[in-house]
């Protein structure tokens, strides 16, 4: 028996909206500790990793670990039927479920929707991601980072991110010209302006902006984003989800051949 009830169902809707352009089908692994999901994009350039802790759910029960293979496209069709204020419950009684039940309830419990989504059997190609001590960590407004990526992607497809003790520089070079945006440490009490840099070792890495713009669809999940980098390592972009868990994106760098 598996049942997970999320009080703020809108969070689940936002998560699916944030990943639906990146991955087509995913395995959600349910265990006693909560839900986790890991999937690569079709080109194997990016990887998304979701972890939702059981104590972030209104009700959570998972008698034994199960894997739920979902088509993101079909999942988002069903989630379109959930109101932003609804609670969302996932449920199945079977051990090897062929479908997953969804219940959407409005606040007054006066409207209850029930859907059943057919499940897929997907080979789980999960990667072992070691807990990395990143040498450069940037915490900043997710809206601001999203804006920087959008603006720079009109000049070039790739951005070079260079960190130093007191600032991070986003540089682009394209046919029309070049540009850079430098953001300094800023302990402002305004969220949108605050920038925390923890730079143990400076890094200089290059990434495809197309992927960063896809990751930034997760801005609605958290007002802050963290960029985690080490030389010759994928960038890890993390959106923490209050009281529930985190959505992480990993992006492989581009290297000059």
């Amino acid at each position: 028996m598996f049942e997970a009830k999320l009080q703020q169902g809108v969070i689940f809707k936002k998560i699916v909206d944030a990943i639906k352009d990146l991955v087509k089908s995913v395995n959600i692994d349910a265990s006693t500790s909560g839900l986790s999901m890991q999937a690569m994009d079709s080109a194997h350039v990016a990887l998304v990793s979701l972890k939702l802790n059981e104590n972030g759910f209104k009700d959570y029960r998972c008698d034994r670990p199960i894997t739920l293979g979902l088509s993101i496209e079909n999942l988002s069709k069903i989630l379109k039927c959930a109101g932003n204020d609804d609670t969302i419950t996932l449920q199945t009684d079977e051990e090897e479920p062929s479908s997953l039940k969804f219940f959407f309830e409005n606040q007054q419990a006066s409207k209850i929707s029930e859907f059943s989504l057919n499940l897929m059997s997907l080979d789980s190609e999960s990667l072992g991601i070691p807990d990395t001590d990143y040498s450069s960590v940037i915490q900043m407004s997710s809206a601001e980072f999203s804006r920087i990526c959008k603006e720079l992607s009109s000049i070039s497809e790739t951005v070079e991110i260079e960190t130093s003790k007191e600032s991070v520089k986003f540089s682009v070079q394209g046919d029309i010209g070049a540009g850079s945006i430098t953001v300094k440490n800023n302990q402002s009490d305004k969220d949108v302006d605050r920038v925390d840099l923890q730079i143990d070792q400076p890094v200089k890495l290059t990434f495809a902006l197309r992927y960063l713009n896809m990751f930034n669809k997760a801005v609605s999940l958290s007002s802050t984003v963290s960029l985690n980098m080490s030389e010759e390592n994928p960038l890890m972009v993390e959106y923490k989800i209050d009281d529930l868990g985190s959505l992480r994106f990993y992006l492989a760098p581009k290297i000059s051949d």
Binding site: A43, A46, L127, A252, I255
Partner: peptide, 14 residues
């Protein structure tokens, strides 16, 4: 120019 590396070049399949 730069060439794009793959994520599974950095993390090993479980």
């Amino acid at each position: 120019s730069q060439c794009q590396t793959c994520i599974d070049g950095y993390y090993l399949l479980n």
